[in-house]
Design a protein around this nucleic acid. Structure first.
Lengths: 343, 343
DNA sequence: CATTCGACTGGGACCGGTCTCAGGTTGTCA
DNA sequence: TGACAACCTGAGACCGGTCCCAGTCGAATG
């Protein structure tokens, strides 16, 4: 009876994942030594290390993340937090670019990405609770609006956070990764002027987003006397808003338009065409982001390329620094003018 | 001195998250009772329950996920696994739809979504290891190709898995959520015929994907004698492949084309225009998916709508069933013809 | 030759939960 | 009144790691 039971036991343990104790037993060392080998292997004799490594290889041992997190207090994961109203974000190809980049950067570090969506108030509540419970080590915040109330919660909880764009008023407490919005807008404005355009309009983004405010600033600065207040419309970065803004804009005499996002540019192009204007012959239209949509659009859209891969890589890198104890810091990256067919 | 030290201690413990022991002490019960209250609260006296609930409310206690996972053996999270070559997937708006739906469904159940990308061989390796280590309870597999080697690994490891589309040969071992491809294709083919078209071509997807194979089957079945083998081209669901396929197709006489994805349809429309054909006047072009791109495309694309919200909800629901011990099962959902302007 | 130092090792406490199980109350039924 | 069930409770053993610390041993130092 006893024999049968122990037989059953060993059957079970053969099925289960090996633990650090089994590795220790098999290698003839203590758990502590195995742990040392796993974590860098300092102060371990070559013999011991080899025995442990062989045992690990033989059994296919993998450390239990949960046990480790419990013991160390580190979660080994970051949250990718989306706070935009869903429609906006999931339409937006840029979010996918950031997500992939972040996932890639984390995988290289043997960490994981947890996706959090805080669209509805109920979702925001449960997300806030999740984050303050310390289930993740840090937060990658994807939100263009500066006024996001979740920001204050994150700061209060004190969880390391990095965001893209610059949330005004929090420069000291949060790390940010952004592009030089003003310079980027100047570059595009200069390009449009260089193409010979004089009556140049802008479809700006919301004023409470960095991209909405500073791209307009750069545009105005560069245009100087050419700048015409009546040729500025607002959109919310979406296709529809670009279409609506362009429809209004067409009531004025305009020969070029700079939209603050590729999607708005696409909407603007559609509006221009419906009005019987040719792009770029009758009216030039440029976008911003180079989100993938710009290249495949018919015709391909001239735009400012944001360095998405660098942005996501930097977000992860800076966030990990902060988690390791560094002070929050901000990184500003360069954009690049990509001339295609629409302007 | 002792006083100072205990003062310091209580300061520290005030900063740290409360544990179940502190709740127990505050409520004047044992840890076991607190645990019972947290998990449903059966076999707990009203008095004890109330005391515990008050203590939880007062302290803002939240259970430590890692500790719980360690004790229960359940991870409390699912993996959202992308196995496509990155380009294809992140261009594809459908993936974002599925991702959001899944995240939402999981948040409601207080579980989390871990994003895993298995693009490169190195990534595949580490993902496989991650999954077999049991760090997540189940896998939502996003891969349209049936031949995916990761599939075999998942089956071997025995981790509960659900996929969208039907991976041939694994119907017994994996759960699948899919749409009725054949019927959907027949519906669209019937629509094109009803519009008066007779020379109808198809830009099919890869033959090793369910959407590639069965949409063609349905198309052929419905067309009957109208079906013309020479009017079938292959693409890989991408915009570029649609453009290339359409360019070839235009060498034949054709008055309508059914593309197996919206992106290919968009590419096909671009190709048709470059060749000087008007859509839909000279040639009707329809897509498949209704991924968001179809509605905002200029002109809006006629397509078959896949029920993305239902698909993601069902994936989560079925996967959780399997994790709870149920047998794998397959769900087939209906699609809907959405007539817009291109066909 | 005694002392000190540094590399290496293992024991045990701990992280914060869950879960089994033995025991204590109370109520009901024979 | 005794037996037995139903309800409620807390002690203690886990889960699988990390990490502090005490201790061993050989070599170098004074």
């Amino acid at each position: 009876m006893l024999w049968v039971e122990s037989q059953a036991m060993s059957d079970v343990s053969a099925k289960r994942k090996p633990t650090i104790r089994q590795i220790a037993a098999q290698a003839g060392v203590s758990r502590s030594t195995v742990s040392r080998v796993i974590n860098g292997g300092h102060w371990v004799s070559p013999d011991a290390r080899q025995a442990v490594e062989e045992a690990i290889l033989a059994t296919g041992y993998t450390a239990n993340h949960h046990a480790r997190s419990l013991a160390t207090g580190r979660a080994g994961s970051l949250a990718f937090l989306l706070t935009e109203p869903q429609q906006l974000l999931f339409d937006d190809p840029t979010f996918a670019l950031l997500l992939r980049g972040a996932a890639e950067a984390l995988a290289q570090r043997a960490m994981t990405l947890v996706l959090l969506v805080a669209g509805t108030p109920a979702e925001r509540e449960s997300v806030a609770q999740f984050l303050s419970a310390g289930h993740v080590d840090g937060v990658i915040l994807i939100s263009s609006h500066e006024s996001d109330p979740l920001l204050d919660q994150l700061i209060e909880v004190g969880i390391p956070t990095v965001c893209c764009g610059v949330p005004l008023g929090h420069e000291r407490e949060l790390s940010t990764i952004s592009v030089d919005e003003v310079a980027s807008a100047r570059t595009m404005a200069a390009h449009l002027v260089a193409q010979g355009h004089r009556r140049i309009g802008m479809i700006a983004g919301p004023d409470d987003t960095p991209g909405g405010r500073y791209r307009l600033v750069g545009f105005r600065d560069e245009l100087g006397e050419l700048f015409d207040e009546t040729l500025v419309e607002r959109g919310d970065y979406s296709y529809e808003s670009g279409l609506a803004a362009m429809t209004r804009m067409l009531e004025h005499d305009v020969d070029a338009v700079f939209a603050a996002s590729d999607r708005m540019a696409a909407g603007a192009i559609a509006a221009a065409r419906r009005a019987g204007r040719r792009v770029p012959e009758d009216i030039a239209i440029a976008g911003f982001d180079d989100s993938g949509l710009a290249a495949t659009h018919e015709p391909p859209i001239t735009t400012m390329r944001q360095p998405w891969d660098q942005i996501s890589a930097q977000m992860v890198a800076v966030l990990l620094e902060v988690i390791a104890g560094a002070s929050p810091r901000s990184v500003i990256l360069d954009t690049e003018l990509v001339v295609r067919e629409t302007a």
